[in-house]
Nucleic acid binder design. Structure first.
Lengths: 214, 214, 214, 214
DNA sequence: TATGAATGAGAATTCATTCAT
DNA sequence: AATGAATGAATTCTCATTCAT
C-alpha cells in the first residue's frame, strides 16, 4: 500500500502537493476502514485523521462513496502482486497452496485488507464488483492454463468459474474464522493449510506430475 | 419461518397478546431486512410494517440490535430442518450434494434468508456468530460420522473444522454470485452443482461405496 | 393569523399537544420568514424560536420546504377574509378602492405578510402558486359580477384575467415602494390611493388627440 | 447585451486583457443567472462557465454579491434603449402601448432579463434598487411630458410616481404569468395587450351609477 | 402494555472566500 | 493577474431511544 510519507515536505509543486493531500486522505481512510469498518468511516473522521479540513475532502473525491469504492480495488492490486511474487514454479497443485498461503501472509502484512474486503460487498458495492471481477477473471485464467497443462481434473470453463467462487469463499470464510480477532490479524494454523491442500489436490488437481513446470 | 397469522385475534390472554405482538415485530423485521437489508431496517420502518407504535418495540426488545441479532439464528434453524428433510440415505458424498442443492432450494423458498445471512456478519455480529456456531458444529459432526463410516479421506477433527468453513464459504459465495439478482433469488445453474460435486467427491470423500448407509 | 398562545398549558391531551407544537413551529416560521426572509429561515433557527428540538420539526413537516410552502396560502386566506370584511356595498368602483385600501391595512396588521408574499415566488413556489390561484380566481369572479351588473367597461374573461394580474402587480409593487422600510410596515400615502382610484375609474390617458406629437 | 467575443485574442495589452477577463465573468454570470437563477449562480459555476479560475473572480469583484448587483442595472439599460427605439410619435396613449409591447419583445430578445429582474429584489437588492430608480425616474418624466401636452388625466407628480409603480408592476406580473415557462420566454397573448390598453386609456370601471348595489 | 411525540447528536455535503505559488 | 487547493462554518435531514400519558 502506498503510504504518504510524513517526512518534512519542504519543496513540492502544486501538482505534488495536490497528490500528496489526496494520498493523505486515502491513507487515513484505509486505516480507519481497516480498523473500524466502513460504517464508522465518516468524512469527519477521515479528514481529521488525514489532518485536513472536511471541505478539502470534496476537492479530491466527488463524495464519500467514491473514495470508499476505490479502497478495495487499489489494495486488491497490491494483494495480487504480493501473491504473484510468492508463487513459485512447482506443480500446479503446489502453486495453488502457495497462493493460498500467500493470501494469509498478505492479510498479516496489510491487516486493513480483511475488513476492507469483507465489508465491501455492502458498503462499497462498486469497489467490491471491480475487485472481484479483477480477481476471478485472473484466477480462472490460472486454472485454464493448469488444465491446458493437464494438471487439473475435468472441468468446463463455467465450472471453473464456480470453482473460483468456492476458492475465494474458502479464503474469505477461513480468514474470518482463523485470522481475525480483537487483537488483530494472526497466522492461520497449519491444519487449515493441510485441510485446504487435501481438498484441492485431490478434488481439483490431478496428482500426477504432468502439471509441473519444467 | 413462523408467521404471525393475520386472522382476527379475538380471544387472547395477556401472555398470548404479548407474544403475538412480539411475533408481528419479528416477522416485519424479517421481511424488511430480507428485502432492504439491515441498514434500511430502522425501528420506525419495522414498527410501521408491524402495525405497532415505535415505543412498543422497546417493550419487547432491549434495543434494535437485539432484534437484529435474533433474526439469523432463528431462520437458520429453519434452514437446518429444511436441509435435513431433503437429505436421503445415499452415499455420504451423494448426501453432501443433496445438502448443497437443498441449500439453494431453501434460499428460493425463503428469499429473505440470503440477505439476512450475508449482511449479518457486519450488522448483526452476535447473531452471525450464533448461527455459524450452530451450523458448523452440526456440520462437523456429520463429517465425523462419515469418517467413522470410512467414507471420507483422511482428515483430522481440526481439519474438518476448516473444511466446514470452506464448504460454508462455497455456499455463501456461490449463492451471492449465482442466486442473487435484482429480480430476486433464482436457482443456480447445473454446472455450479457439478463443479461442487467434482471438487468434494474427489477432494473430500472416498469414491468407493464404503460410506453408503445400509 | 392564528397564534399559539403562550398561556400556561396545563391540561392538553395528546392531540392538542401535537397541534400546539405544530402551531408553535408554524408561528415561529412566520415570524422569522417575515422578519428575515425565507433564505434565513433555517430549520435550526425556526425550531430554536419555537422552543423545540430540530428533530421535532420533522415529526410535523416532511421537510423544510413543505412548511415554507404552507406559509403563504395560510396567511393569504387571512388576508382574503380581512379584505372581505372591510368591503362594503358601495359602487363597484368604490368597492375596489376599499379592497385596495384594505390590503394596505392588512399588511400593517400582519407585517410578516409582505415578505412572505414577495419572496414566495422563488423560495416557496408551490405555496406561491396556490396562493395566486386562490386570489386571482376569486378576483376574476368579482370582476365578472361587476361586469354583469354593468359596472365595468368592456372586457372579455381573458382580459379580466390579465387585469387581475395588473391589479395584483399594483398592490405588490406599491407596497414594496411605499409600505416597506427598515422600520417596519407603514401606511401608504393618500396619493397612492387616489392615483390608483383615478387609474381604475378613468384610466391614465385622455382619449382625445391632444397628446399626439405634432 | 455586451458579449465577450470568443475570437482569438492575440494582441491585448494588460488593461485590455484585464477588461476582457472581467467581461467574460460578467457574461457568464448573466447567462447562468438568467438560466438558473441567482441562487444557483455560485462563484464556482460562474468562473467555470467563464473559463477562469475561482480565485480570478476576486481580482475583478470584491465579492460575489457585488457582481450580482451589477447584473440588472447593466441589462436594464439595454432594455431602456431597446424600448426607446421602438417608441414612435403617435399619441401618448399609443406610445405607452408601444412601450408596453416593446417590453415583451425585449424579454424575448434577452430571455435572461426576466429572471435577472424578477429575482433581483431578493438576491441583488442593491442592483434592484438602482435599476428601479433608473426606470421609474425616466418613466415619471415621460408621464410629466405627456401631462404637459395635455394628454393625461389629472395626476399630481406624486400620483405619477405611484402610477409608475403600477405600470411596472403590471409588466412584472404579466410577464411572470404569460411569458415565462419551462420552455423559455414566449410572446404574451393579444388580449393582454388589449386589456392593458383599455385600462390605461379608459380605466376599469364605468363612472356611472350602474354598478352601485341597491 | 401501548402509544407516538420529543429529543439531539451526528451524518454528508456546499460554497464564499483566502492565500501561497 | 491568474491560479486552484484549502478552509470551516452552516445547511438539511435521520434515527435510536426516552418518557409522559
Amino acid at each position: 500500500m502506498t503510504q504518504a510519507t510524513s517526512a518534512k515536505v519542504t519543496k513540492l509543486n502544486r501538482v505534488e502537493r495536490n497528490a500528496w493531500t489526496k494520498q493523505k486522505i486515502f491513507d487515513a481512510a484505509t486505516k480507519i476502514v481497516g480498523k473500524y469498518g466502513y460504517a464508522e468511516a465518516s468524512v469527519a473522521r477521515i479528514t481529521e485523521a488525514a489532518g485536513v479540513a472536511q471541505g478539502t475532502f470534496y476537492n479530491h473525491f466527488e463524495n464519500r462513496q467514491e473514495l470508499l469504492d476505490q479502497l478495495l480495488p487499489k489494495i486488491g492490486l497490491d494483494m495480487v502482486r504480493f501473491i504473484h511474487a510468492r508463487t513459485g514454479t512447482a506443480s500446479e497443485a503446489r502453486q495453488e497452496i502457495e497462493r493460498f498461503s500467500a493470501f494469509f501472509d498478505f492479510i498479516r502484512e496489510v491487516p486493513e485488507f480483511l475488513r476492507i474486503l469483507n465489508e465491501a460487498e455492502f458498503f462499497a458495492p462498486i469497489g467490491y464488483q471491480k475487485h472481484f471481477d479483477n480477481i476471478s477473471s485472473a484466477y480462472v485464467r490460472i486454472l485454464q492454463r493448469a488444465r491446458a497443462a493437464g494438471a487439473t481434473n475435468t472441468f468446463s470453463d463455467e465450472e471453473f468459474e464456480a470453482i473460483v467462487q468456492v476458492l475465494m469463499g474458502a479464503r474469505g470464510y477461513l480468514s474470518r474464522r482463523y485470522s481475525y480477532s480483537e487483537q488483530g490479524v494472526t497466522a492461520v494454523p497449519d491444519y487449515v493449510i493441510t485441510a485446504y491442500q487435501k481438498l484441492v489436490t485431490r478434488g481439483l488437481f490431478t496428482t500426477s506430475d504432468k502439471g509441473r513446470k519444467s
